[in-house]
């Protein structure tokens, strides 16, 4: 009677052991790495808008504070998309006749809002509130990056839950004085661990890591 398992089955046995490890450990690990990769989180992907609005011109060139246009950031869950009437008073002289500005003119004439494309998007099961973050000393820049250097705005942060938690666990490493919230390229005047610890006390910043903080 020949052997029940010929010699080549040794290779199969070893290969299947390796395959099992790859399947059980490698595939989930690869998938977990993938969902965090910039390609999957859509990080750094410039989002084309109905108008070629350039933040650099307005922030660096004209010294306009973020809150001039995103006016509800301190009292609402959303930062606020400026209505067409924010653009028009200044641009009644410059650019209003240009083709770049045509969507704004149409919006003004037809009294329909401009349809800006969302850049920083969270899933429907995440309840984010701008006001509480800004009022507790989280800078615009901390999540949105150097918008003052972006020709077309892109998502600067990975927006994964781990990324949110990195600050929710250790807010002292990220908070800044309220007066500097909209500053771009902010550098703390004292070491962050000193200033962070002081601001956390002063602003009553808590470490909120409960699921229900964000998921309701």
């Amino acid at each position: 009677m020949p052997a029940l398992f010929p010699p080549w089955t040794n290779v199969v046995a070893r290969a299947s052991l390796i395959a099992a490890v790859v399947l059980v450990v490698g595939v989930p690990a690869a998938l977990m790495a993938w969902v965090r990769a910039p390609n999957a989180t859509r990080r750094y992907e410039p989002v084309a808008q109905p108008i070629a609005f350039d933040h650099r011109v307005h922030v660096v060139g004209e010294h306009i504070d973020c809150r001039y246009c995103h006016f509800s950031v301190e009292r609402s869950s959303t930062a606020g998309i400026p209505p067409t009437s924010t653009c028009v008073p200044c641009h009644s002289q410059t650019l209003l006749g240009s083709s770049t500005f045509a969507p704004v003119r149409r919006s003004m004439e037809a009294n329909t809002p401009l349809q800006w494309k969302r850049v920083t998007s969270l899933p429907g099961f995440v309840y984010f509130n701008h006001a509480i973050h800004v009022n507790k000393g989280v800078g615009c820049e901390s999540c949105h990056g150097r918008v003052d250097q972006m020709a077309t705005v892109y998502q600067a942060a990975p927006l994964t839950m781990g990324w949110c938690l990195s600050c929710h666990r250790y807010p002292a490493a990220f908070v800044r004085p309220r007066a500097e919230v909209t500053a771009m390229g902010y550098a703390p005047r004292q070491p962050q661990r000193v200033i962070g610890a002081r601001l956390v006390r002063e602003y009553h910043v808590r470490r909120l890591t409960n699921c229900t903080t964000c998921h309701r």
Binding site: S76, T78, T112, P113, Q115, F125
Partner: peptide, 21 residues
Amino acid sequence: RMRVQQRYDLYGASRAFPNGA
């Protein structure tokens, strides 16, 4: 399933009003 939920968010679009907002 839960990523896109059937609710209106601020600044969202709506077919219920003539200006689409």
